[in-house]
């Protein structure tokens, strides 16, 4: 039965000591420990979260880079295409220009030839006229020396003309 009857002394000491232990540990152990644990858990959580965020950002960045690359590639293709087209156009234009110039040159040449021809013909005509005049003069000078002589002379001059 003694087992079931609490002693006053022990109740007193247990109360006093338990409360002292409680207050000492509350102030110097449990509060600092609980705060430190909480702070550390918060810190770890934050670190994990920011790592996750960094990972996401990295993925985003990578995606962006890929997009940029894709864009750049498209742009390059576009530029290349345009350049090719431009080159072709220029080539075509150049070809067209060249043929035009050539035609023009040919035309010019033709016209100049024509002119030369005309000039030459004019000259020939002048020359013929001069020669005719000369002949006429000579004929006139010798008109009195018989028909035969005149005829021979004319023939001679005509022969000369033919040679020319």
């Amino acid at each position: 039965m003694e087992l079931l009857t609490p002693g006053i002394g022990l109740i007193f000491w247990q109360t006093v000591i338990f409360i002292i232990v409680f207050i000492v540990l509350l102030t110097f152990a449990w509060r600092p420990i609980a705060d430190a644990l909480k702070a550390r858990e918060g810190f770890i959580n934050d670190a994990l979260k920011s790592a996750e965020l960094a990972k996401e950002e990295m993925a985003q960045l990578k995606e962006d880079n890929e997009l940029l690359l894709e864009d750049a590639r498209k742009e390059r293709d576009h530029i290349l295409k345009e350049a090719l087209a431009a080159a072709n156009r220029i080539k075509e234009e150049a070809k067209a220009d060249t043929s035009k110039i050539a035609e023009k040159m040919i035309a010019d040449a033709k016209s100049s030839i024509e002119n030369e021809k005309k000039a030459a013909l004019a000259e020939v005509q002048n020359l013929v006229a001069e020669i005719s005049l000369d002949i006429a003069e000579k004929v006139l000078r010798k008109n009195l020396s018989g028909d035969k002589a005149q005829k021979a002379l004319v023939d001679e001059y005509i022969k000369d003309l033919k040679v020319n």
Binding site: L4, P6, G7, I11, Q14, F18
Partner: peptide
């Protein structure tokens, strides 16, 4: 000891 457990129970 019942005194010890009793005090804790009372707290």
């Amino acid at each position: 000891n019942i005194a010890v457990t009793g005090v804790m129970a009372i707290i």
